[in-house]
Simulated scan of single mutants.
Amino acid sequence: MQNRDQRKVIEILVSILFIVFITDTHIVKAQNIIEKVTKKVFSTSKDSTRSGVFMVLPALGYAQETGAEYGIASNYNFYFNKKDSSIRSSNILLMGTYTTKKQSNIKLQADIWTDNNDYHIISELRYRNWPSNYYGIGMDTKKADEDLISQKLFRAKLEIEKRIASKYYAGVNIQYDYVQFRDKEIDGIFDDALLLGKKGGQQLLLGISQLFDSRNNVSYTTQGYYARAKLAYAPKLWTKEDFEGGNFDADLRAFFPLHPKLTLAAQAIYRSTFGKTIPYYAYRDLGGDMMMRGYYIGRYKDKNYLASQAELRYRFHPRFAAAAFTGVGSVFSKEYNARFIPSYGGGFRYFFSLEHNSNIRIDYAYGEQRPGEKRQSGFYLSLSEAF
């Protein structure tokens, strides 16, 4: 009897020791995983192999007009030739989202620098079946006039620039757009608007570009200048309401190192649409996550767009940075006067690749507050700097 009790006690002790061992093993494994993740997140060492880096973010959201939205945004940074130490970092961005109301948004973009940075290639494929809000044309539109319209867009774009001097490039570009619109609300202002191309249309843009680029890094610039101008012509090929005219786009940027960890960045853009026939789908939009943050993209819309912004970037750790920004901008035309409005906010950056200086950008921005309306604002989560 005594031996039987002793065996039971021994069995219980062995079981307890086994449970403790297993628990300790899992705790050690969990601690090791946490240590590895922490070391990776805060690591200050670069990848000496110059390998590519891939990042995926979930895209989740909800809006009344779309229902629940889910998908991914992914970014791949790489060197076209790892052996070329002077080559700039290239990237491929893929984003795809779908909603419970069967709407979809798919975008594939590439920005490629070839050997010795001899060629710069930009491409885009996009399909968008997504609702958007229409408020009218010009800078005096009202939130109360908001009209929900459905939009279908297919876009294919290719731009190729060749280096002809140390920091100077010249190139050609082609872009095709197919667009459809439909007013989803009865008695909405979109149906009553006197606009060409309200049902949509097609455009083929053929153009040239010029680029001066002395930036020290294309992903997170701390010093240098960037100036790009693009002129494109759209011939009338399909219907009488198709776009026949031209687009001119200018983008100027400057970066000044105030301190090894502090950079002042500035940008100015001018976008103009002109010609004999200018349909609605060729108008320019104010707002979004790149310029004039804090405004719904398309909240103000017209044939011309002029805006500028400045951003103070403080990289207090190799993996982390903070930013504060402000801007001003307006759309305008012969029919509607310019009215420059403010944009301001701040954000946080996490650099998931030190070799490529690739980061996740989180911004919150404010816009103007019109009489009788809430102050406009926006939250942004992106896989690149605004500029």
Rank of each mutant, 00 (worst) to 15 (best):
V9L: 15
V14D: 06
I22Y: 00
T23H: 08
H26S: 02
K29V: 01
N32H: 15
N32F: 10
K36M: 02
F42A: 07
T49I: 04
A63N: 14
E65W: 00
E69A: 02
E69F: 00
G71V: 03
Y76M: 09
N77K: 05
Y79W: 10
N81T: 15
K83I: 02
S85E: 01
K102S: 09
W113M: 13
H120V: 00
I122V: 14
I122F: 04
R128F: 06
D140N: 12
K143L: 10
I149E: 05
F154H: 05
K157V: 03
I164K: 13
K167A: 02
G171S: 10
K184T: 07
K184C: 05
E185G: 01
A193E: 15
L194C: 01
L194W: 00
Q210D: 04
L211Y: 04
T221E: 00
T222F: 09
T222L: 11
A227I: 06
A234C: 15
E244G: 06
A250C: 07
F256L: 15
L262K: 00
A266E: 13
Y270F: 10
R271D: 00
T273S: 09
Y283Q: 04
G287Q: 11
G287N: 11
M290V: 13
G294T: 10
I297G: 01
I297R: 10
Y305R: 10
Q309T: 07
R319Q: 12
F320K: 06
G329K: 12
F332S: 00
E335M: 04
G345R: 11
G347L: 01
E355Y: 06
N357V: 03
R361T: 05
P371T: 15
G372K: 06
G378D: 02
Y380R: 14
L381Q: 11
A386R: 14
